[in-house]
Amino acid sequence: TTQFTVHSPEQAEQWKEYAKQKGLEVHVQKKNGTWHVTIH
């Protein structure tokens, strides 16, 4: 599991796309103005 924080919805979307291409599961949670992205 990879977990990191991004600071814009655009970055979060890019990671979603990346994960989809790799066939991975991605979870994005918005918290205090940042987005926590978890890739399984």
Rank of each mutant, 00 (worst) to 15 (best):
Val28Ile: 14
Lys30Gly: 06
Thr1Pro: 10
Lys22Gly: 04
Phe4Trp: 04
Val26Ala: 07
Val37Phe: 05
Thr2Leu: 15
His40Pro: 03
Gln3Ile: 11
Trp35Asn: 01
Gln11Val: 12
Leu24Thr: 02
Gly23Tyr: 03
Lys30His: 14
His27Val: 11
Tyr18Val: 03
His40Ala: 09
Phe4Tyr: 07
Ala19Lys: 01
Val28Asn: 00
Lys31Gly: 09
Lys30Gln: 13
Glu25Phe: 13
His40Lys: 11
Glu10Ala: 08
Glu10Asp: 07
Leu24Val: 06
Thr38Glu: 05
Gln11Ser: 08
Ile39Pro: 00
Lys22His: 14
Lys20Gln: 10
Glu25Leu: 12
Asn32Asp: 11
Thr2Gly: 06
Glu25Asp: 09
Lys16Ala: 10
Glu25Met: 12
Thr1Met: 12
Leu24Asp: 02
Thr1Gln: 09
Gln11Pro: 02
Pro9Asn: 11
Val28Thr: 03
Glu13Met: 10
Gly33Gln: 05
Lys16Gly: 04
Ile39Val: 05
Gln21Leu: 12
Lys20Phe: 09
Trp35Met: 02
Thr34Cys: 13
Gly23Phe: 04
Ala19Ile: 03
Thr38Trp: 09
Val28Arg: 01
Gln11Leu: 13
Leu24Arg: 04
His40Arg: 11
Lys30Met: 13
Glu10Cys: 09
Gln3Leu: 07
Gly33Pro: 01
Thr5Gln: 10
Lys30Ile: 13
Thr34Arg: 11
Gln21Ser: 13
Gln14Trp: 15
Gln11Gly: 05
Thr2Met: 15
Glu10Val: 07
His7Arg: 08
Gly23Val: 02
Thr1Trp: 15
Trp35Ser: 00
Gly33Asn: 09
Tyr18Asp: 02
Glu25Lys: 12
Ala19Val: 03
Gln21Gly: 09
Gln14Val: 10
His27Ala: 06
Lys22Asn: 13
Trp15Arg: 00
Pro9Gln: 15
His7Lys: 09
Lys22Ser: 07
Ala12Phe: 05
Gly23Lys: 05
Glu17Val: 09
Val6Glu: 02
Val26Ile: 15
Phe4Ala: 03
Lys20Thr: 08
His36Cys: 13
Glu17Phe: 09
Glu25Arg: 13
Ile39Ser: 00
Glu10Ser: 06
Glu25Thr: 12
Val37Ile: 14
His36Val: 15
Lys30Cys: 13
His27Met: 09
Glu13Asp: 09
Ile39Lys: 00
Ser8Gln: 04
Val37His: 01
Val6Gly: 02
Ala12Arg: 02
Trp15Ala: 04
Val37Ala: 01
Val6Met: 03
Gln14Tyr: 15
Ser8Val: 04
His36Tyr: 15
His7Ala: 12
Ser8Glu: 04
His36Gln: 13
Ser8Trp: 05
His36Ser: 08
Trp35Ile: 04
His7Pro: 08
Ile39Glu: 01
Lys20Glu: 07
Thr5Phe: 12
Gln29Pro: 00
Thr5Arg: 08
Thr38Lys: 05
His27Gly: 03
Gln29Ile: 14
Lys22Ala: 11
Val6Ser: 03
Thr1Leu: 13
Ala19Arg: 01
Lys22Phe: 13
Lys16Trp: 08
Phe4Arg: 03
Glu13Val: 06
Glu25Gln: 12
Glu17His: 08
Thr2Phe: 15
Ala19Pro: 00
Val6Leu: 05
Phe4Gly: 02
Glu10Leu: 08
Thr5Trp: 12
Tyr18Glu: 02
Trp35Gly: 00
Pro9Glu: 15
Thr2Ser: 10
His36Ile: 15
Phe4Val: 07
Lys20Tyr: 09
Ala12Asp: 01
Gln11Asp: 10
Lys20Gly: 05
Thr2Arg: 14
His40Gly: 10
Lys31Asn: 09
Leu24Gln: 03
Glu10Pro: 02
Glu13Gln: 11
Val28Gly: 00
Lys16Gln: 09
Gln21Tyr: 09
His27Pro: 00
Trp35Leu: 04
Glu25Trp: 12
Gly23Thr: 03
His36Trp: 15
Thr5His: 09
Lys30Val: 13
Gly33Ala: 04
Gln21Ile: 11
Val6Ile: 05
Gln29Tyr: 12
Thr38Asp: 02
Gln3Thr: 14
Gln29Trp: 12
Lys16Asn: 04
Glu13Leu: 09
Glu17Gly: 04
Lys30Ser: 08
Ala12Asn: 02
Pro9Val: 14
